[in-house]
Design a protein around this nucleic acid. Structure first.
Ligand SMILES: [Mn+2]
Ligand SMILES: [Mn+2]
Ligand SMILES: [Zn+2]
Ligand SMILES: [Zn+2]
Lengths: 143, 143
DNA sequence: AAGCTTATTGAGATTGAATCTCAGTCTAAG
DNA sequence: CTTAGACTGAGATTCAATCTCAATAAGCTT
């Protein structure tokens, strides 16, 4: 199954005079197989396990490329290191984070998106991405 | 001028069996004098300039206390280090960040707050804080 | 005011994520 | 096939943040 994300990456690299190397290919393929949020070290560990030989440096160098290509996005940190998730081909969503058990709830609200557009317009601001994180207790933890 | 924030800090410390030291006092007083967002190193530098002798370690140790006391809050990072702002005694607000010039626009929307409450309720989630950051171009940068 | 318990401090060491260096390697265009 | 120059990996480096621990000081108690 030819992935549209790989195509997008290839085209992005081409547009920047960058090259699609074995390492970058291994990284994006691994990212596409993942579900949920991930971090660079996790990626490095798993890729080694897979037999792929990709250095930590290449992981850290490739992540910003995937971000700039619009394929992944940084998810703000509960932890102290960066977390990412696949976005190209997925529906946009925001997050609720349970501060007790760590559960992550993904949600989407059309009304929320429209309201943000209106608020931007009121400031003459041209928004082109946003992050909304709500912290609190999930349904299981809050009784 | 007696600051309600200092009172809150004193009470918080007391409730935790912690002590109000010269260093902690110098730090909160400096924070109360600041406008806008700040980071720990900036605080350290400015306090030294003021003649106060407060170590970097004490800055980093006091910040989480101020956060737990509800006096300051972390503002998510454009940079790679943490930024904070005073919240106790100020109206809650969210941020728009201009990715070109770095301008920070603070805004508040009652409707946005209510909508978030509704979304939390729909998930059985008890939200108790949130961060909304909209990235894009400010009115000056977007023409 | 003096004594005492224990939280706190500062200087410097340490951690850990992220970035950089650079000689050897590989991609992709011609 | 050749070649220019992008890319890689190992290890060094940076930098924010945290930790260590002996010396201090906060704030009770008498
Ligand atoms: Mn997500
Ligand atoms: Mn603010
Ligand atoms: Zn939970
Ligand atoms: Zn701007």
């Amino acid at each position: 199954m030819a992935k549209k994300q790989k195509k997008a990456f290839r085209e992005f690299l081409e547009s920047q005079n960058l090259r699609l190397t074995r390492e970058r290919e291994a990284i994006i393929e691994h990212v596409l197989r993942k579900h949920g949020h991930f971090d660079p070290e996790e990626l490095h560990f798993e890729l080694k396990g897979n037999g792929a030989k990709v250095s930590r440096a290449s992981i850290y160098r490739t992540i910003p490329l995937l971000v700039n290509a619009g394929i992944i996005e940084k998810v703000e940190n509960t932890d102290k290191h960066a977390h990412y998730e696949l976005i190209l081909g997925r529906k946009h969503h925001d997050h609720m984070l349970c501060t007790r058990c760590g559960k992550v709830i993904e949600f989407y609200s059309e009304g929320l998106e429209r309201l943000q557009d209106r608020l931007c317009k009121a400031e003459g601001f041209k928004g082109n991405s946003h992050t909304l994180e709500i912290k609190g207790l999930c349904s299981r933890c809050n009784r």
